[in-house]
Design a binder for these strands. Structure first.
Lengths: 138, 138
DNA sequence: TTTGACTCTGTACTAAAGTACGGGGTTATA
DNA sequence: TATAACCCCGTACTTTAGTACAGAGTCAAA
């Protein structure tokens, strides 16, 4: 099967070559097999894995969280833990979506006002997102 | 009107006192008036502003982006810029929500499978989020 | 077969977002 | 009026997520 060098994987995924090695060090991607020379041989699956990491990051997950997510994807921990983890993540996602929805509405409102050339006096951005809430730490 | 010291504001918002000073240095909160002694006097509005920063951060915005968001809230830049900025942010938010929705569905699916005690063989987490897409850099 | 492009490792550096600390002044309360 | 608890400033340290670099080996195409 066709394999990629580190540089090719980097180019393919648009990340820095050093980042690939960094992810390997962090355990975000498994250690790939090597040629006798020591060169890494990445299967095409690695491309998807890198994309996954990048998109999850764009969603605001830390590398640690992505590590856990990938452990789930890899079927690593016991089923019970997976379930708990997945449920927590779903709750977390719902909170995020809710907050994003709010911010979106406010911004759309702002655009409308802007269109109407009306002056923005008391902008509602802060009010919309600044209520106290039970902190969702993990 | 009642004002807060730095420590009180920190306690009220649940952030470290040093963080307050840090945010002031970064321009995320305006410089408050001082007592003759040099002690800061924060109006209660600062509480909301800190909460806003924290929640926006939880949504994955960087302090730089939050700075821009707050500039809009403060009515700083010209209306045209606000509009463009707000529209970009809305698009960004829509992408995030879309991706979060996907990840949520996958996790829920995972939970269902877990419930049924079935073994997770080929986890769909990666597949669901690893398609290439036109990168949305700013 | 040589030469330019690539890869290896290990170490060091960077930027962002805080946190901690030391030495000093201030405030509230016993 | 002391004294603990608080605040000031400046500087330095920490963590996360990479990046850069040096010195050495490898590969491929002319």
């Amino acid at each position: 099967m066709k394999t990629l060098t580190t540089g090719q994987l980097a180019k393919e995924t648009g990340v820095n070559i050093e980042t690939i090695r960094y992810y390997e060090r962090c355990g975000l991607i498994p250690e790939p097999p090597r040629k006798v020379s020591g060169y890494r041989k990445f299967s095409p699956k690695y491309i998807e894995r890198i994309f996954f990491i990048k998109r999850a990051q764009a969603l605001g997950f830390t590398l640690k969280e992505i590590f856990d997510l990938l452990a789930v994807a890899d079927g690593k921990p016991a089923c019970k833990n997976i379930r708990k983890f997945a449920e927590d993540k779903v709750a977390d996602i719902e909170t995020r979506m809710h907050d994003l929805q709010k911010m979106k509405m406010v911004l759309k409102d702002l655009i409308k006002k802007c269109l109407g050339k009306r002056k923005i006096s008391e902008c509602p951005i802060i009010e919309s997102l600044s209520q106290k809430r039970n902190r969702h730490k993990e």
